[in-house]
Design a protein around this nucleic acid. Structure first.
Lengths: 133, 133
DNA sequence: ACTTTAGATGACTAATATGATCGACTAAGT
DNA sequence: ACTTAGTCGATCATATTAGTCATCTAAAGT
């Protein structure tokens, strides 16, 4: 029921880049220092964001990272899912396929959990980096 | 962003007991077999529920567990908190005390996360074992 | 008393996730 | 060439999670 450091850091980094969209490329070190994120850890995170096309990078002097798409096209949901996996409050549905999972025998419980998941999804889906920068 | 097996099993066990409130004590084995929960693991869970006064137990023949309070006085929120800790989607607030935590420098993000946590809390708080049995 | 039934308790373990760190490598400017 | 800065793979320590085991205690039935 909580975010991992990874997705928190990812969001912080994206917000950081969004704020500096005009300034071209920003170095990992810069982000790490200003946001208080371990540099090497942030590297990994930015790489993942890059492979998922949220950021672009440039090597060498004057290089660094910048957003690859406008901040209002990046939802918190996407970012969190990228790092923490599905938002579902129970994984039962995906973990078991053929046998009935314990909790499935309590459909009312499942229903409540689904409603929560749906609400969380909706909120995170409609909130973008631009909204929180 | 998901429940642990512990709190899922705890809810299932409570629902099981609630359904059999008239029948006096129910054995761990009975619950375990019907709900598909590893018996020894369920023992641990029931012990925690007992110490938190949600269930009562009786040893020996004819013994077992039963609810210690009416099912509609037990909210899902309480149970989940008992096993999974606070429902907050970020632990920043509790983890750091004196230094500003990274994510706190993004108050808008924090606000969204708080709203989600509050919603989740409210729903789980008002849903009781009686509602899902 | 004795046996059976059933919970109580603490130690232990295996697997996975999490939060990093290290070192070597590659590309881009100057 | 040299410096700057991203890339990539491996590795690591710790925590969490899910569960097991062995032993002990208490209550009932005989």
């Amino acid at each position: 029921m909580r975010l991992t450091a990874r997705s928190e850091y990812a969001i912080l980094a994206l917000v950081h880049l969004a704020r500096r969209e005009q300034q071209g490329y920003v170095t990992v070190r810069g982000i790490a220092e200003e946001q208080g994120i371990p540099e090497k850890f942030l590297e990994q995170i930015l790489l993942i964001l890059k492979r998922a096309h949220y950021v672009q990078s440039l090597k060498g002097q004057g290089g660094g990272y910048r957003l690859a798409k406008p901040a209002r096209r990046i939802s918190l949901a996407e970012v969190i899912r990228l790092f923490d996996g599905p938002l579902a409050p129970t994984e039962s549905v995906s973990r078991y396929f053929y046998e009935a999972t314990p909790i499935e025998r309590a459909p009312r419980v499942l229903k409540v959990l689904r409603q929560i998941r749906d609400h969380v999804s909706r909120v995170l889906e409609k909130t973008t980096i631009a909204d929180v920068m």
